[in-house]
Structure formats: structure tokens, C-alpha cells
Amino acid sequence: MKFLEYLESRIYDIIYYILFLFLIIFILAAAGTKGFYIFLFSAISAGAFLLFLFFSFRKAEKESEKIRTLADSIEEAYYISEVLPKPRRLQDQAMYYALQKACLAMNNRLSAQEQDHQEYQEYIETFAHEIKIPISALSLTFDNENNFALKKETDRISQLVEQMLYYARSENPEKDSFIRETFLDEIVHNVILKYRRYLMEHNVKLDIDINNVIIYTDIKWLTFILSQIIQNSIKYFDKSEKILSVQTLVRPSSVTLIMEDNGCGIPAADLPRIFEKGFTGSDRSRANATGMGLYLARKLALRLGLDLTAESAEGEYTRILLHFPKGTVHRFE
């Protein structure tokens, strides 16, 4: 089949050859050559031509295959023009030229885009830092005035700015992570302190039982992850007796931090989707959700080499599990 296609692509050569053959046959016949010799000549000539066509087909096939493998093996396909063998045929050279042009245009576009993206990211970073100055002034003022209502609004602004900042950073967090030895219980304690006003306001009963585990991680990132989880717990409490428990499960090769609340839970149909970007739940219209919190939490957790999973029964509980594999844990006591 492929050979037929190839023949089709060389149709002019073939027509030319046939016409030429006829011409020779005509001349031979006119010169009085015997029919047998004319036939013999034609058969040999046609056979040789077919053989020639077949071998050039095989060669073309081999070369095409080489180019295809090359194209498939290269990760960033827009560099393909750099590695292709330079063609000798006129038409192929034009194609090659066109491809080079296309790749160059693509590369230029890409680096311009990357540059823009980086500048944008730097702007976001600067913006977040600048806006934290007035936020901080407000926050401190409301603290001093014991104005919890406005303090809460300020906290909300601060949390949203934080989320934006971490979203911008989540593209390449390696740039900003600082792995240090730290105590898991201390990080949890600080996150609880951060949200103490909310927990006290809702009369949340805390049940904290954390083994004395040393972990190696970035404190800031882990704090952000735990903050997202605790914010969700606070947001989705729906019973009069509210319980938030934080426990550790220590296994020989890993530690799991289990954060469980007895809030409204997550419908089974939604559970597999809660870590998706922008997912705000099928029936949670009352909450002002961005759908970014858990998405970012999981993304950052994976970047830190941790895993974040969830279990829930609707109306009963939500349990978020953060797994620290062996490499991130030092010692159990």
C-alpha cells in the first residue's frame, strides 16, 4: 500500500519513463528490429526500472523513519530543526527552510512569553509584599483596638493575598524552599495559634496528640498547607459541638498527620475532585470558596515530597491525611 503511495508520488517519472519506452519501441520497430528483441528489451528495461523504484522507495522509507524517530525522541519538539539532517533535494531544502523558520519563530515567541511570565511573577511578588504593609498596619490597629470583626476582614484579605502569592510561587517552588530540621508538633501548634481567634469564636474543641517527630521540610510551605486545611475545617463546621483533632500515625517507615473535623463532610461524588484546581463543590453555594486552597495545598505537598489525601463521610467528618515518607522524617520518640 505504502509502495503504491510512493509510486503515486513519482507518477511523472513513471509517465515519462513509459512515454520514453514507447518512443524507443517505436524507433526499434521502425528500424525493423524483431518483435522478440523489442519485447526482451522492454521487459528488461521495465524490470530494471521497477527494481530501481522499489529500492529508492526502501531508501526513502528508511530516511523518513529516521526523521520520525528523531522527532519523537526529542522532548522539546521545537528544537527539531537543529538536529535534522540537512536534505539535498531542492524541494526538501525548501521544506527544511520553512521548518527552521517556524522553529525560530516559535522559540522567539516562547522566550518572549517566558520573559513576560517572569516579569509578571516578579510583579505579583512585589505587589504581595507591598500590600502586606498596609494590611499589617490595619491588622495591628484592630488588634490594639480589640476589634475582632474588622480584624477578621483583614485576615481574610491577608489570606487571599497569601494564596495568590503561593499560587505564583507554586510554578517553581524550588527557588524558594528552605529545607530545615523542625518539629512537627511545633508547626501544628503555630498554625493553631494563627487561627486561635476563629477556633475560640466557634468554641471548637481541640484534640491534639502529636508524637515528637523531627521532620525535614520547608516550614513556611508546610505552614501554608496546614493553614489551608484548618481554614476549610473552620469554614465547614455545621454542628453545635465542633471537634477538630490532629493526630499522628507513626509507622516504621513513615509518619502520617491526620487532621479530622466533624463538620459537614464531603459528598462521595465530590471527594475525588476536591484537590482539583477551581473545584468548589457541587453543593457548597453558601461558602465563598476560591477552589484554590486544597489544590495549592496538594500541589505544594507533592513538591515537598509529601502526599495529601482525604477521606470523608457526608454529614459526619472530613479527614485530611498528610503523609511524610521516610526521607522527610528523622527520628521517632
Binding site: 502586606k132 504593609i133 494590611i135 499589617s136 491588622s139 495591628l140 483583614t154 486561635r196
Partner: peptide, 8 residues
């Protein structure tokens, strides 16, 4: 880091 918690 700002905004800081007075307690901390």
C-alpha cells in the same frame, strides 16, 4: 513576617 500575630 508581616502581617504578624502580636502573640508570636
Amino acid at each position: 513576617a508581616k502581617p504578624y500575630d502580636p502573640l508570636i
